[in-house]
Design a protein around this nucleic acid. Sequence first.
DNA 1: TTGAAAGCGCTAACAA
DNA 2: TTGTTAGCGCTTTCAA
Lengths: 347, 347
Amino acid sequence: MTTTLPAPEVQDAPAPAPARAATRADVARAAGVSTAVVSYVVNEGPRRVAPHTAARVRAAIAALAYSPNVAARSLRKGSSEMVGLVVPDIGNPYFAELARAVEVAASEQGLLVALASSQADGDVERELMAELSSRNVDGLLVSTVRPPEHLPPPPPGHRPTVLVNASRPYPGYAAIGADAAQGAYDVVDHLLGVHGHTSVALVIGASTERLPEPREEGFANAFAAHGLPPGPVVRTVFSRTGGYEALRRILSWRHRPGAVFLSSDEQASGAYRAVREAGLECPEDIALVAYDGTSHSEFSWPPMTVSRQPIAAMARAALATVLGSSPVGNHQEFATELVVRRSCGCP
Amino acid sequence: MTTTLPAPEVQDAPAPAPARAATRADVARAAGVSTAVVSYVVNEGPRRVAPHTAARVRAAIAALAYSPNVAARSLRKGSSEMVGLVVPDIGNPYFAELARAVEVAASEQGLLVALASSQADGDVERELMAELSSRNVDGLLVSTVRPPEHLPPPPPGHRPTVLVNASRPYPGYAAIGADAAQGAYDVVDHLLGVHGHTSVALVIGASTERLPEPREEGFANAFAAHGLPPGPVVRTVFSRTGGYEALRRILSWRHRPGAVFLSSDEQASGAYRAVREAGLECPEDIALVAYDGTSHSEFSWPPMTVSRQPIAAMARAALATVLGSSPVGNHQEFATELVVRRSCGCP
DNA sequence: TTGAAAGCGCTAACAA
DNA sequence: TTGTTAGCGCTTTCAA
């Protein structure tokens, strides 16, 4: 301990810092006004305050370093001024970028973001949603790991919820996502059409669902459009390691595909490493393209050709949707953008 | 308004769904007890309740789907069961990993994490700290962008705060960080001692401080230990682009250094790209090493030699410190680990 | 233009 | 073991 405690009973000593924060009553007293006036000044309404009075109040606020107690305001107004965000893993660059976008959009509205990771576990996700809801978040954004058939409709009393990163509709929920089928189609079509590949593998997560994943669908559609049989599909986890293992597998095949479509930036990161480790060059020996297109993909070598999700726009829309309590059961789909860089073979 | 108000005086009509959430008073009425008893049951204390009474209360809670109002509890108790985390940018892989570690540690204690990004702006950071504090977070973890001389002591009433990612003491604050000077020393010493480099450049952020940055200090010390004059220092922003620009600059020098020490993984990511783009190979043409060592560094090619921060351990310690209201003004320093991979020239 | 005061829902000290 | 009640700090209606 290098600091010394102030002597407790000495009244005339320079005032020791008060143990508690200044309240609106302290400010009112210091400014010689009522607490209502302080409120009017702080909130710039709902009543007008004479400029001179307002100045006095502001001076008192500054002098006391007063800052309103959000918990009290939240109780009084019945809103927590907070949105909840549930993602599978904040360490994944896609979700990190999503979190940043949500945070930026939220802070523009004076809202805080409560962040929770489901660890890609549906049960954890459910608990987290209930927990956040009971905290009266003004809105709940969830990137669910559960397929529609495993996501029960929101229980009564749940806060307004919107599913983000949802590439298809979820009955009973508002959902927002990129058009992943089209995104997958675009980037695979580029490989097939522009570069003349005939064999492209897909690396994607394990299928836990009845319906085909949209990226898988777009992948297959691109082949169909070119009159080709669909390429092989490798299922693995959505992680760097997953992408790494998948490529190791693919590179060991007798007939190695000319290109691979990675269904996420994170998998692509692992894939690059496996290719390099095998002493191969991208795109000369094998072309790599991906879905997501976070800033990560721009800094791999060679820079990665991707279908990019409009993360910022989707985050903004998600927030607007959940705060405006839009009709449930609809699905807002955002177009992806084909970003051609070098990993596909383009110069 | 689609709901109809209950007819006020009709006692026997089937109760229409209440327009508002049930409160503790509703539960008390339904169970025929006082609100205090409901509190005791909900919180399992601080007074004992007769089993039979408790059962009645629990039945009423279930029947009314009552869930406590967190804002009210938070106001009353001065605690929100939430910790605040302020980082410069959640999109940076280091902070994403830190956020994940904090979130994991917090959820083990039943705490939620409120996340806020300062955008590397000291004023925003200050506001965010005040905002989070006024929400009665139980603890505040801040990765400050301000040097000690620009970080005023916590104002009265501020919640317990600990600075994370702090590589030196901050007067008036508890601070936790890795021993960056030693980490920098280790990795530069490896370059100098094992690989026989004589010229190593440092890429680091702009210096806004009086004291030398610890990484810069460690960098210089390593040269001194080898009887060498310190290498050149390039100051840029802490971002991928910063690292990219810095390497472009370095590669244009007449006497190109044999190796570069990047002071963060993020800068290293940009650096790799600049090296590749120049048609150079790492480590043959120029060796690259970095500080931070997030999982990112493992998946670059070649895999990056780094001094790795023990992020999970530091996050856990930060939470323990802030919740235990440890003495201020101390500095917990964690050792980094030299992780030798390939970018330094090791096989 | 300003002030007084009634709660928002909850906890816990105090009383019974 | 249970009930009564005084606030926590704030917003806002109502009165002056």
